[in-house]
Write a protein that binds this DNA or RNA. Structure first.
Lengths: 329, 329
DNA sequence: TTGTATGCGTTATCAT
DNA sequence: ATGATAACGCATACAA
């Protein structure tokens, strides 16, 4: 690899001059500029980011910490972050936390050791010292904490909508699937749903789950229909679980949505392609990723950011696992 | 952030000594070691990886370039890579190439600028200078090139198996969905399938597609049944497309697998949860990711690697979009 | 067993 | 308009 010294020698100038043309800083004569540029081209020189990073005490790297890229919701987020970062010449160091505090901490530490200029994290413990003591900007994604920069959607509201739509479509023996205890958005959704159900005085059953894993989802779906065979409406903790429930319902010969209605959460790309296609509470994952990246960049560049916590809309996305409600007027 | 100098001062020793205890290199008296360790703890010191990287001209970073993390096959790969790398204290700089050469080149360049010690890439142009001229190890993942380190599965064989199983289950009006022209594994699968079909003298139709995107998949599925309504067997280019085909077939009132059989490719996690669940040619994505990471690490550590190109098995994974074949014996 | 000094490739300050 | 040089934080060769 050619260094700035090689270029300087090759062009017959000093390293300072080369640095000036690279960074377009300070004066440099047109002729020498051209000489330097030629040298750069001939030697295929590209600046060493590590040396830059060391000197400036900041890099063009950001850290992205997501729970599990294997859950189809997160690739959308990640892609949004990446596209926005890429467009602004930032690169991403990526890690999966598995919602595990130790992993989380370890990753944040190595992010810092690598001089990242900011981090985007999807964590259930935003108030932990791991984040509070960081002296680089952090944006929480798909999670939030009072007054800290974050991009998320209102899980509670989503849960409420799900319950309302379920009720207005006639289900009365509702089972709510409660997502993992330690995952914040999962609890919000659950709370929102049971708020509405309780208010309306509707009895409901609950299935407690402990992960979003594909393999376990099927187990919970089975458990659901074994324990509560007369269920006529399922509010799932996310689309993966909803998909498993749909699968199990059909396997048991139930008609969806006639016998059982199902509402999922997230709107992962595959939801449309299920049969019947999945009604769900949509979060605009890709846009959330982009927004988080964009917010982080503003923070990094020290711009005055007026709106540090961005709440994205959750939207009821009606498809075919729920019945049509009659139109009035 | 505390530096090695701060630690040295705080412990009343020189930076060299601190460095020795950190790296467990050279002699250091038990007492001074303890002093240093205490200082490290008290100052919450962690070594600056950037400075290390600059001095040693190598980091603990590797570059991972995947086509599109939004395609459910790739998160599995990525996760495999990440887990193995994480276990060996390497971190990942991640990028999506969109199978686009310019993006690919740009990413590889910034990888190099950041002193990565190796890269894992899923590219259709492994013979490009971008890779040939790299002086760090590269492992190709889900792709291969003669004699270069790679982890992949035999797409052609997969295509053959798909066609054979389709035939042995009685389909005779087969439509093969041909994946994007510029994606190598897609072409391999296609070739494998038509090899068998041609050999057996079976006529078949082809639907040409240009991406693996979720949104377009539905379009091709529609096109398929419009152009070739009498199709009784579909060999899809991957599971996403297969899912769209299944969806469309059911929408048209066809019975699957009685009227139409469908075989996908990849075995993405959702395949099991479709109804009917998807028969597919499985690639062990997670294991491929781990294997690639493991291979790269060996290459980085300069070990003698006997088997540089690892071919993983493709396996016919029979589920419910194909008919059962009778058991003999 | 420990310390001093040098260099990794940049950028920026200060001369010239 | 250009060049010499210090400094970023660390690891190592060499000296002590």
């Amino acid at each position: 690899m050619a260094t700035i010294r090689d270029v300087a020698k090759h062009a017959g100038v000093s390293v300072a001059t080369v640095s000036r043309v690279i960074n377009e800083t300070g004066y440099v004569h047109e002729d020498t500029r051209r000489k330097v540029e030629t040298a750069i081209r001939e030697l295929h020189y590209t600046p060493n980011e590590v040396a830059r990073s060391l000197y400036k005490r900041k890099s063009r790297l950001i850290g992205l910490l997501l729970p599990d890229i294997t859950n189809p919701f997160f690739p959308e987020l990640a892609r949004g972050v990446e596209d926005e970062m890429q467009a602004n010449d930032f690169r991403i160091i990526f890690g999966n936390s598995d919602e595990n505090r130790k992993k989380e901490k370890d990753y944040i530490q190595t992010f810092v050791q690598n001089n990242v200029v900011g981090v985007i994290a999807s964590t259930n413990h935003p108030d932990n010292d791991t984040y509070r003591k960081l002296d680089i900007p952090v944006v929480f994604l798909d999670r939030t904490a009072d007054n800290r920069p974050s991009v998320y959607s209102d899980g509670r509201e989503g849960g409420r909508i799900a319950a309302q739509e379920m009720l207005s479509r006639g289900s009365r023996k509702i089972t709510v699937i409660k997502g993992p205890k330690h995952i914040r958005p999962a609890q919000d959704r659950y709370q929102g749903a049971i708020d509405v159900l309780s208010n309306e005085g509707i009895a409901f059953n609950v299935i407690q789950t402990s992960s979003y894993s594909f393999t376990e989802a099927g187990t919970w779906a089975k458990e659901l229909f074994e324990k509560h065979p007369d269920t006529d409406g399922v509010i799932a903790s996310n689309d993966i679980v909803a998909t498993a429930v749909l699968h199990e319902a059909l396997r048991l010969g139930k008609k969806v949505p006639d016998d059982v209605q199902i509402i999922g959460f997230d709107d992962i790309p595959l939801s449309t392609l299920l049969t019947p296609s999945l009604t769900t509470i949509r979060q605009p994952a890709y846009d959330m990723g982009r927004a988080a990246a964009s917010l982080l960049i503003q923070l990094i560049e020290n711009e005055n950011v007026d709106n540090k916590t961005i709440q994205m809309p959750v939207t009821f996305t009606e498809r075919d696992t729920t019945r049509k409600v009659e139109q009035h007027g």
